[in-house]
Nucleic acid binder design. Structure first.
Lengths: 115, 115
DNA sequence: CTTATCTATTTAGACAGTCTAAATATTAAG
DNA sequence: CTTAATATTTAGACTGTCTAAATAGATAAG
């Protein structure tokens, strides 16, 4: 099973988070984690210790907005923080997509995986 | 001018070095630096402080072999260390290319840049 | 001869974002 | 009451970038 190491993920994790929020709508941290694991087909070995700090960075940067979930529907477990994309985050996502494309073009070009 | 940040480069630099050695043959550090800058069309802002440590790691790992250049042809400047790919390095390069492809597929898939 | 310049390597230290690992919290189920 | 499931938080290690400068040799310029 191929796996993506932490080093490779660096600098891309925040973009991935923004992307799942854009595609599947608002979610709490743990669900974002599961969405990413699922979308990564097991290649993404993402840990809480990486995800939650990334969410805080995004929140501080105004790219996501977080709210504590109400306790209206009784459920198992502690209160959850629901994250959703802000307009600023959506713009950042668009820019990051272009940056990723550029990154792939440059690095892929040197590696000869595209040429 | 789009630029690739250090974070994104992380975990890919050693592969890039192996690739330029494979494609353009042996070279000393400074030339590798210039080859990468040239191949990156200015998007790669690579620094000596990143390159030389990476070369030492590759050497320790047996993926490149380094030799001090002889002083036969008089030239300006200090002696240079010439690096060339080892068979082990060539195998690592092949594996790393596949890993990069996988990385692009997974991350690109989540970002929606390929789908 | 002295100084400046070009080329190249080395290295100290800062920085940031992963990871490991565990602590904490809440509620349902048994 | 205890156990299990869910979710968040956080301390600390690790590593590979970056900044920045020190070191160095050889030739060119004056």
């Amino acid at each position: 099973m191929p796996s993506i190491t932490g080093d490779s993920l660096r600098g891309h994790l925040e973009t991935l988070i923004l992307s799942v929020l854009k595609r599947s709508g608002e979610a709490h941290g743990f669900e974002i984690l599961k969405r990413l694991e699922s979308a990564g087909s097991g290649a993404l070995n993402l840990k809480e210790g990486s995800l939650y700090p990334a969410l805080y960075r995004l929140e501080r940067a105004g790219q996501v907005k977080a709210e504590w979930e109400s306790n209206s529907t009784p459920r198992r477990g502690p209160r959850r923080r629901i994250y959703r994309l802000t307009p600023k985050g959506a713009r950042r996502l668009e820019a990051a997509r272009n940056e990723f494309q550029n990154f792939v073009t440059i690095v892929g070009g040197i590696l000869g995986t595209t040429a």
